[in-house]
């Protein structure tokens, strides 16, 4: 196994492109080191990128935020403006692992790990986050939901890696929230999860809604019908019931040691409902 800290984005891309064996990119390392220790993966090359320019920075951009790929969750949590603008995204990132993990783990790592249960992913999808990808052919911006393609798989080509995540500007009267179900209160992988991101008009009617669910399909899924069910409502019981039905219809989970198909489907709807209510309140809506 080789461990390399390349000096530039270009050098990193070349290294990753040219390595014939298994490669892993190290940001926080909280997934990669677990894979190493459990001998699930034995990479030939580990490329450490977090020292590169911008990887550790949170910067304002077009009214939104650009978050470097090496920024650990704990730093995002401590960034007051970011936290105020996107509490749902932050609470997703803040639920990954323990306090100790928080000091290292990154949203980009969580995304590229390709787990459908990644806690920070539904919040980013609901937020309409866009990632910047660097590769042999230069840079491209990609909607976050297009990155994971299946458990452990991403749409990134060989030599490509994510350098940052962009969270767009927040309109007035908007709010987001993320909830997950775990058997304990901490330290578990989500059995099911849901994020909601709402925008309201002045009388509290939902004008735009994005609902994303996790751990109930091969990838985190943006459920457009669930969002549509909320638009035009003030989260009345009918709208919520329709939204929950849309979420349940979008679920195609598996039975495994963490939960059953039935349980995951049912709780995904419940969590989406609860997240929508929190997001609504954060957007200033009242019923």
């Amino acid at each position: 196994m080789k461990y390399v800290k390349p000096e530039s984005l270009h050098a990193a891309s070349v290294l990753l492109s040219e390595e014939p064996g298994t490669t892993r990119i190290l940001a926080g390392g909280t997934d990669v080191l677990v894979q190493l220790r459990s001998e699930v993966v034995e990479p030939d090359l580990i490329v450490d990128l977090k020292h590169l320019e911008g990887f550790g920075d949170i910067t304002s951009e077009d009214g939104g935020f650009r978050i470097g790929a090496g920024v650990p969750s704990a730093e995002m949590y401590e960034h007051k403006a970011l936290h105020a603008a996107w509490p749902g995204v932050i609470e997703g990132a803040e639920l990954i692992g323990s306090t100790q993990i928080q000091g290292r783990c990154t949203m980009v790592g969580n995304l590229c790990n390709g787990s459908p249960a990644g806690d920070s992913v539904p919040g980013m999808v609901a937020a309409g986050a866009v990632v910047r990808v660097h590769g042999p052919d230069g840079e491209r911006d990609v909607p976050v939901e297009e990155i994971p393609t299946g458990p452990g798989k991403t749409s990134l080509a060989k030599g490509e890696f994510i350098t940052s995540i962009f969270l767009p500007a927040r309109p007035e009267r908007s709010g987001d929230a993320y909830l997950r179900f775990i058997p304990r209160t901490e330290m578990d992988i989500a059995v099911s999860s849901a994020a909601a991101n709402l925008e309201l008009d002045t009388d509290g009617t939902v004008t735009s809604a994005r609902v994303a669910v996790g751990a109930v399909a091969p990838t985190v899924r943006l459920v457009e019908e669930a969002g549509t069910a909320l638009v035009g409502s003030k989260l009345d019981d009918t709208a919520i019931a329709n939204m929950m039905a849309a979420v349940e219809a979008a679920c195609s989970p598996i039975d495994d040691k963490r939960g059953t198909v039935e349980f995951r489907t049912k709780t995904a709807g419940v969590l989406a409902k609860r997240a929508a209510h929190i997001a609504y309140e954060r957007a200033g809506g009242s019923k």
């Binding site: 461990y3 190290l26 390392g29 909280t30 080191l33 677990v34 450490d48 100790q100 993990i101």
Partner: peptide, 18 residues
């Protein structure tokens, strides 16, 4: 648990080279 560069981390999840 150790403190690495003023952050609480699990030292089992940090490569020594880092």
């Amino acid at each position: 648990s150790v403190i690495l560069n003023d952050r609480l981390v699990c030292s089992c999840l940090v490569l020594a080279a880092e």
